[in-house]
Design a binder for these strands. Structure first.
Lengths: 170, 170
DNA sequence: TTATATATGTCAATATGGCTGACGTAAAAA
DNA sequence: TTTTTACGTCAGCCATATTGACATATATAA
């Protein structure tokens, strides 16, 4: 437990490297979400609403259960947030054509507008970081985050060749 | 707003690049915190307790106001979590020697044990991702996260030469 | 056709972790 | 001596998560 300086063993990291990674993740994630949070509060929304708007915007006509899978919350938790977004006309639901039990989710125009407002902010932040860091750094950023995820989450990026292990290894 | 494909302008990102960055951050952060959350729940603690344990472990003898600065929450919010940790003997407080109004915070042996348990988990995850991604990728990961932070947060890493802009730019 | 499983919604109760505002105490600093 | 600072606490509010139970419509299997 105290033997953390064994640089020879690649499964162990020096204490400083480990702490640095943890803190970079913590502080950058905190700052990354701070501005959207502020915008959302003007609408009386929270981060939960942001996540719904983001993923529905990303995958129009997605079903409620697909959304639940991504967010990993209970349907009761989602329900409050989602029905609020529907009630206030940011998201619309319509029955699936194949399976009429499903409620396919889409952003309304109003919803798309809020989505853009939220995304523009983060776009600027990411663009800035990418520009300063450079293309090689960006590739490394992607590769490390990809491998930080669970097996399960990595599947989500299967279509992105540059993130695949074979390529990441060399 | 629709003109997101202007690859010439480095301040804009293609929609896919942007979405990818946002999702990598979202999913990797989610998975990164999932396991510690589970360990914590066995103790009746949440992520807030984790943050306190982490930063007190990192900076022994830190004061309450330093901790408040880092966490960016109110003292009332911290109080509930911190006093619980003190009551259950994970953190100890003792008056500052210079300024006796301060309560210097330290982990007890019990607190250090929980800290290790939580950290070992994340250490393995980071070590694994670093090993698969390789040294260059790790450098890029750090540089991008560093530049995603606010000016303010970047100061926290002032002592880390490899993260400084002059070097990051080339 | 009937029975079962699935997709979704909703009611109720509970917990965590944020917040604001107000007030108190001890100690440092002016 | 007065004011400021570091810290704590009480009370109440809000957002977001949880579990469990139950309801409805529809799809699918027996």
């Amino acid at each position: 437990m105290a033997d953390v300086k064994s640089g020879a063993n690649p499964l162990f990291l020096r204490e400083e490297e480990l702490r640095q990674a943890m803190e970079l993740l913590f502080f950058s994630y905190r700052d990354f979400t701070a501005e959207p949070d502020q915008i959302l509060s003007r609408y009386g929304f929270g981060r939960a609403h942001h996540r719904v708007i983001y993923f529905v915007g990303r995958h129009p006509s997605m079903t409620v259960s697909e959304l639940l899978d991504i967010l990993r919350i209970t349907k009761q938790s989602l329900s409050r947030v989602l029905s609020q977004l529907v009630r206030e006309d940011f998201v619309e639901q319509k029955p699936g054509t194949e399976d009429r039990r499903q409620r396919l989710l889409k952003l309304t125009e109003k919803g798309k507008k809020l989505e853009s407002e939220l995304i523009e902010n983060q776009r600027r932040r990411i663009a800035r970081a990418y520009r300063i860091a450079g293309a090689d750094a960006v590739a490394g950023f992607r590769t490390v985050l990809y491998n930080l995820m669970d097996e399960d989450g990595r599947k989500r990026f299967d279509h992105v060749e540059a993130l695949q292990p074979a390529i990441a290894r060399r």
